[in-house]
Design a protein around this nucleic acid. Structure first.
Lengths: 267, 267
DNA sequence: GGTTCTTGTCCATATTATGGACAAGATACG
DNA sequence: CGTATCTTGTCCATAATATGGACAAGAACC
């Protein structure tokens, strides 16, 4: 009699026996979003959906291990020294960054406004590169290292727009608890995603900073899933309809080149 | 009736309720020592002292979470992309690095041989900076990011020599299982530590690479505990007794300056 | 086509992590 | 200066989780 076997863990069904580790990582990712300033315990509780004793325990164990630090005055929790230390084990920049570098240089020179490269990491977006353009007014709101729930930033909406609608919905739903903090919600995000999907790129008329406008173009890996987005942010007056189209053309051209580089294994 | 309270967790008694998380971190640190190439499962088992099913489970959960990667061909496990991503949350270089930078520049210029800055992290040493000197023959064996059990590298011995003998013994004992891989052992290491303590710095006549010689000077934090070491490595012929003393003088001068910078909070 | 590696999986079990409830500081307010 | 309202910290009985012994399946080597 044949035994019925599970299909050899085909990367979808979650492996069990490590709840605590997964939770610790969820906590870490929330702390990462707080950058240097860190995050108060209550906010970690809210964002992860875990109970307070659990978060407290996890965070304090991570402190003992040097993975998390606590800011003296504020009592906020932040990513600790050991994390960059562990990161040193990977000396080389990510393949994506290598593939994108020449394009970023070119596009930044051609456009002259601030250019961001934002990757998807789990349910977050993470800004991994920023190029300042030649034009004297630059939008510098987002810094390298900035991490947000997918759906909050212009780049995040673009990335969601480039995946199957169902996947996008699942991710946004998973981020629901975290969206409040950014004054948005599941419905708003999904509407933006739908609009971006129709348009072929994402346009944000009202940036996080008043009077700015952003254009985001997605970048897909060979398997067809979006891995990143390039975003141009500028004061609104710099991005009239005509120039908008110019910028979109440049970004789309470069996005295709980056995708080609990834396929060719330029890394 | 007064309740007897534990002394408010004075940083020594280990907090419990997170065995799995601690184990996962132990695994990560071993993987970090493997750098890009990674580490086979069996070696992680050996180094951590955990059972194989446990390590297997931990490692695979970390893969699902993107914290660990697996190298296609070799099947070795290595630190994954998400770790540097998390590290981006700490944009600023460590205070120690800031405090040490000018001294490294000066010492490298004065000495002309390869200069390393190595920090202690847990029970490991981690090379965080390397300066190539002007002399045409340079010892480049150790790279930035290299991680070893405390006691294996010249810098590690120096750091152990600068702490209370008892603490040093405890750390070396904790690393016992990992020392085999480097062809050394508890007794050898402790002998080297004792010699370095007497001398005031560490001297290694036979470097990991044949025909090289290393000098390591420790750097202490204001609380008196060693946090790092500066090491000069050169071909043996470059470091006769006279020049050895010169190099030691320079390194010791700069070590004191770095310690002063740390005290003054130059960061 | 065995022999010896290393890696992967299963599952009963004991150990561990969990979270409700309570406590203690901090900060604001009348 | 008391008390109300936060946020953070701790305890401990209990359920649920992680554990590891035993077995299985690939690789690699001869």
């Amino acid at each position: 009699m044949d035994k019925i076997r599970k299909p050899a863990n085909s990367s979808a069904e979650p492996r069990q026996g490590a709840q605590a580790i997964r939770r610790a990582l969820a906590v870490l990712r929330i702390l990462a979003a707080g950058r240097e300033d860190g995050v108060p315990l209550a906010e970690v509780v809210q964002a992860t959906g875990l109970t307070r004793p659990t978060v407290h325990r996890i965070v304090h164990v991570l402190i003992e291990e040097g993975i998390v630090e606590r800011h003296g005055k504020s009592g906020r929790y932040a990513i600790g020294n050991q994390v960059p230390e562990l990161a040193l084990a990977r000396p080389r920049p990510s393949p994506l960054l290598v593939a994108a570098r020449p394009s970023l240089r070119r596009a930044s020179a051609d456009i002259g406004d601030t250019l961001f490269l934002t990757v998807r990491t789990g349910n977050d977006t993470l800004c991994v590169d920023r190029r300042i353009g030649a034009y004297p007014i630059q939008v510098l709101s987002i810094e390298v290292g900035a991490r947000r729930p997918l759906g909050v930033s212009s780049a995040g909406v673009a990335i969601l727009a480039a995946m199957a609608a169902q996947d996008a919905r699942r991710i946004v739903a998973a981020n629901e608890k975290r969206l409040d903090a950014y004054r948005t919600g599941v419905a708003t995000v999904l509407a933006q995603v739908a609009a971006a999907r129709r348009r072929g790129y994402n346009l944000r008329e009202i940036g996080l900073v008043q009077g700015t406008k952003s254009i985001s173009i997605w970048i897909k890996t060979p398997d067809g899933r979006p891995a990143a987005a390039m975003t141009v942010s500028a004061v609104r007056t710099r991005l009239g309809p005509r120039r908008e189209q110019e910028v979109v053309d440049i970004l789309q051209r470069e996005a295709r080149i980056i995708e080609q580089n990834i396929r060719d294994g330029v890394a």
